[in-house]
Amino acid sequence: MSETYHPPLATSRKSAGLPTARLGTWWVVASEVVIFGGLVVSFVMYRMRHGEIWADQASHTKLYAGALNTFVLLTSSYFAVCAHKAAEVGDGKKAANLLVRTILLGGVFLCVKAYEYTSEILAGYGPKADLFWSFYYTATGLHGFHVVAGMVIMGFVAKDAAKGKFLHRVECIGIYWHFVDIVWIFLFPLFYIASGL
């Protein structure tokens, strides 16, 4: 079916002043903001309610693994934005190359995450150990799921970009990836570094 598919004219119109694909991506980001926001708001409420006791739990998360992951995601975001820059001048090969690097860094992120999960669970901090850990696994799990989704979509975009097709998609997947990065920028202090409170 996909060979006979032509996008309708509506897709190429720009009444709002920006390309449709990017506008759609922004709406996706907006709806994700409220999904993660709802989780973070719930967590912050419980965190404030259980104050010092949760601070003790939070001190058992692996600060340096989290910091490494922040570094990894920031770097991958840097590659994603460079890919966008390359795609804009029409250099699909370079964009695809940079996107592949982004995907690889996403893989590194997941490996670090897997190491963290394993060692936490082995140390007795499984999802049911405490409500703090339930939140920890739910929030980072949901975030990890978004990382995986981003990597898969980016794979398709990179494949097309290498052939010079659909280069505008590089920017859209970039926006999504930066959003995933920003979620992590907030999850990192919430779960890892604010244990002194």
Binding site: W27, A30, S31, E32, V33, V34, I35, F36, G37, G38, L39, V41, S42, T138, L142
Partner: peptide, 14 residues
Amino acid sequence: FMVSVGPLIAGAVM
């Protein structure tokens, strides 16, 4: 719908 359902999706996951 979009703005209100987000927190509930998080709530449904919980």
